[in-house]
Amino acid sequence: MIAQEAQYRDWMLAALMGDAGAYRMLLSGLTRHLRSYYARRLDASAAEDAVQETLIAIHTRRATYDPALPFTAWVYGIARYKLIDEYRRNKRRATVPLDEAGELFGHDDAEEAIAKRDVGKLLAKLPPAKRELVKEIKLDGVSVADAAARTGLSESAVKVTVHRAIKSLGEEVNPGGRDADR
């Protein structure tokens, strides 16, 4: 049994009856898991898009949740579907495990919260404009398109800037490391 099951299920049941507060807590909580789930499987901008698409899918298909069934398995089913959808769109073939709700709920930003402190220190080493972009896209979940609109850069320039900045930070942490760029 996944640790968050009871809490999430309660929120979901309240949300199905129209409780917006519970719903907001639910979606915020799920976002942490989804972000970490997709971040390990997609590149940054696609990951955040997938998070949003999954949230929308959870919203529009919420009537398909059967209270007699585990809520986490339901969410994992949708997250997995959206992941496959994303792979399909990029013509990537992949197999995604079927019954691994733990894949989604085993991780969240909690471990990453600790990491975030260190990330803050690292980010300080970047020039302000780059730092802001990396923070928006990698940490705050702003889409590449929105960041591009804000800065006036093209989307590909934004992606390249973020990519290089991350790479230079990788050098910082792991000098000469060969796996800095995966």
């Binding site: 917006a20 507060g21 719903y23």
Partner: peptide, 16 residues
């Protein structure tokens, strides 16, 4: 932004 999306979705929540 994802936070805004969550805000919108929960603002438009209707009971099922």
């Amino acid at each position: 932004r994802t936070d805004d999306l969550i805000g919108q979705l929960s603002a438009n929540l209707e009971p099922v």
